[in-house]
Simulated assay, not measured.
Amino acid sequence: MSVLTTLAAITPAAPTRLDPIELFMQADIVVQIVIIGLILASVWVWAIIFGFSLRMGNTRRRCDAFEEEFWSNDDVDSLLDARRRKDNPSARVAAAGIGEFRRSHKAGLKDHEAARARVAQSMEGQVALESDKMADRLNFLATVGSVAPFVGLFGTVWGIMNSFFQIGLQENSSLAVVAPGIAEALFATAIGLFAAIPAVIAYNRLSNTVNGFESRLMRFGDRVHAQISRDMEGL
């Protein structure tokens, strides 16, 4: 066996693909902090996506059951008790309108149009409140979607600056000196995009879901308002 063959046998083979873990371990401490922050943000983004999807599915089922029972049951008080209103936006919207109607009726319905307007405003305000509650956690998705690429870019700039510093320190501008640092730096940008892209897509999709659910509550509120208006005509 020749010397060259022996050296080839004992020399470890060069990597044939990128190793993210190795890139992270060799990166500068600042770049590592950036990557860790972006990974944590990405994990939280996916937690919000799955949690929100499950929550919306459960909320739709509860609202479907309540609305079906609401239009087929004459005992409104039993439907609108505190236990039934818990985690049920449709029930809270109906309770807001019926509660305003009862307060107006108790004080004496001298102006039916004013009473109808108050009932409508009460339900519209409750619908807006329910929508704000559902959309509250989506703000984090918007923040990550807009900020994560720039955070990754900061890690990239820092890594490239460190690479140029190594060039000056070693007085060697060969690609072998520059390439590892640049690869580590660009890895931060890749992680930033990895966090931002799902966040932007999810924010747009889930915001549309919230808008659709808000429209559904508005339609339900309109039907309740129409029923209350009919009841007022008989008083």
Rank of each mutant, 00 (worst) to 15 (best):
M1I: 08
S2Y: 06
V3A: 06
V3Q: 07
T5S: 10
T5C: 08
L7H: 14
L7R: 08
L7S: 14
T11A: 09
A13S: 13
A14C: 12
T16A: 15
L18A: 15
I21Y: 01
E22L: 04
E22S: 15
F24Y: 09
F24E: 14
Q26T: 14
Q26M: 14
I29L: 11
V31R: 02
Q32F: 08
I33K: 03
I33A: 04
I33M: 08
V43Q: 07
W44E: 11
V45E: 02
I48C: 05
G51Y: 06
G51D: 06
L54W: 14
L54H: 12
L54P: 13
L54D: 11
L54T: 13
G57M: 08
G57L: 11
T59M: 14
R60P: 06
R62D: 08
R62G: 11
C63F: 06
F66P: 05
F66V: 09
E67Q: 12
E69L: 13
F70A: 02
F70W: 08
F70M: 02
D75P: 07
V76H: 13
L80V: 01
L80D: 04
L80T: 00
D81E: 09
R83G: 05
R84C: 05
K86I: 09
N88G: 01
N88R: 00
P89T: 01
A95V: 03
A95H: 04
I98K: 02
R102T: 03
R103L: 15
R103W: 14
S104H: 13
H105W: 15
H105R: 12
A107I: 00
G108S: 01
L109R: 03
K110V: 14
K110P: 14
V119G: 01
A120W: 07
M123P: 00
E124C: 14
V127P: 02
V127T: 05
A128G: 10
E130M: 02
E130D: 06
D136M: 05
N139S: 13
N139G: 15
N139C: 11
T143V: 11
G145E: 01
S146T: 10
S146Y: 05
V147M: 08
L153I: 02
L153S: 03
F154P: 03
G155D: 07
G155L: 01
G159S: 03
N162E: 12
N162W: 12
S163V: 01
Q166F: 02
L169K: 09
L169Q: 10
E171D: 12
S174G: 12
L175N: 01
A176G: 13
A176F: 09
G181I: 00
I182A: 11
A185K: 02
F187E: 14
A190M: 05
A190Y: 01
G192L: 00
F194S: 15
F194W: 11
A196Q: 10
I197Y: 13
V200Y: 09
I201Q: 04
I201N: 04
A202I: 10
Y203D: 03
N204K: 13
L206Y: 06
L206N: 03
S207C: 03
V210P: 03
N211Q: 06
S215D: 08
S215V: 05
D222C: 08
D222R: 06
I228R: 04
R230S: 07
D231R: 09
M232N: 10
M232C: 08
M232L: 15
E233K: 11
G234Y: 07
L235Y: 06
